[in-house]
């Protein structure tokens, strides 16, 4: 069977088609890049509204299938920006009704984990999900992806982007900070905030912005990466030691950062675990992960009725049952 997945939680509107074996037939994304400032929810939603028909028809056409061949519509029901989520949900309801096929609402965070598992061929990983909106360390326990550690305030990607904006770099700032950091080996003093297994980045952001007046941008960029990535690495290491998982999976937009990859790779090695990074195309927000997770839910007999299809901007990863996985 073929599944069409729609992703619209934040800056990216994306459609992906996968089959029931987890093969990605096609994936097309359109990412909103604001001219100034950060993501305004309404403007981002308007971007999705303008591009969705093009994205979906290109996805179907390039996959060399007809929209009539689709058997299931999956959409990201949360967590994310309300106005953006509603665009995806509305399209899903329309397609589901028009094509007379079932639809299924998917948790965006679960989708990141599941596409990572199928794309990297790993079975039972400790998952480190780091993006512009989320920073979560999770693993399967008691039938759910339990959150072992997470950010208490802003996400790591959000922190990097916000700092970059303050420093006059254009959105998205993460990759630019990575380039700048390569030119420095200096370490400036920034707060190192690990609370048990949880992390906090807002104080570091404030301190880093303050450093802008006195130091080179390269040195601040390097210190920012070294400090925050070390925090993540430390919590990941503790979570692996605590859960005894033998695989570490890195995903989310920040997984594209080579320095972070290298650090988590060493952590995995130290803990005798294998290390997997989700391929770049599938690590960021994308429709294929929604389609694949939608299939896993459908395969368990779960579909979403019209009444249940309301978006859930605050839907947590650990509120979702994962019946398709057996605990080891």
């Amino acid at each position: 069977m073929l599944i069409l997945g729609l992703e619209s939680t934040a800056h990216t509107f994306s459609a992906g088609i996968v089959d029931d074996a987890g093969n990605v037939l096609n994936l097309v994304s359109d990412t909103y890049i604001p001219e100034t400032g950060g993501l305004h929810p309404l403007k981002t939603a308007m971007h999705h509204q303008d591009c969705f028909d093009g994205v979906i028809s290109t996805t179907v056409k390039e996959a060399k299938v007809s929209i009539r061949d689709i058997d299931l519509i999956a959409f990201s029901q949360g967590p994310g920006l309300g106005p953006c989520l509603r665009i995806g949900a509305t399209i899903a309801r329309t397609l589901s009704a028009g094509l007379r096929i079932p639809m299924v609402g998917v948790n965006h965070c679960v989708a990141h984990v599941e596409i990572g598992r199928v794309a990297c061929g790993c079975d039972d990983p400790l998952c480190l999900y780091v993006s512009g909106g989320n920073t979560i360390i999770s693993a399967l326990k008691c039938g759910r992806y339990q959150v072992f550690g997470e950010t208490l305030d802003i996400a790591l990607g959000n922190m990097l982007d916000t700092f970059a904006r303050e420093a006059g770099l254009a959105h998205p700032g993460g990759p630019k900070i990575e380039q700048l950091a390569r030119k420095s080996d200096l370490l400036l003093d920034l707060p190192y905030v690990v609370k048990g297994m949880d992390l906090s980045f807002s104080g570091i952001l404030t301190s880093a912005i303050r450093l802008l007046a006195k130091h080179d941008l390269e040195d601040i960029a390097n210190s920012l990466q070294e400090t925050t990535f070390a925090m993540l690495a430390e919590v990941t290491e503790r979570a692996v030691a605590h859960t005894g998982k033998e695989e570490v999976l890195l995903t989310g937009g920040v997984a594209a950062n080579d320095r972070l990859k290298k650090m988590i790779d060493i952590v995995a090695l130290e803990q005798d675990a294998s290390f997997h990074v989700v391929p770049r195309k599938l690590a960021g927000d994308n429709g294929a992960m929604i389609a694949w997770t939608g299939f896993l839910q459908f395969d368990q007999g779960n579909t979403t009725s019209l009444e249940e299809s309301r978006v859930m901007p605050n839907w947590r990863l650990d509120q979702v049952d994962i019946p398709w996985r057996q605990e080891r």
Binding site: A155, N314, R316
Partner: peptide
């Protein structure tokens, strides 16, 4: 409630 999105989401619990 401070962790991401834990605001009393009664519909889900």
């Amino acid at each position: 409630t401070r962790g991401r999105y834990v605001k009393k989401n009664k519909r889900m619990d």
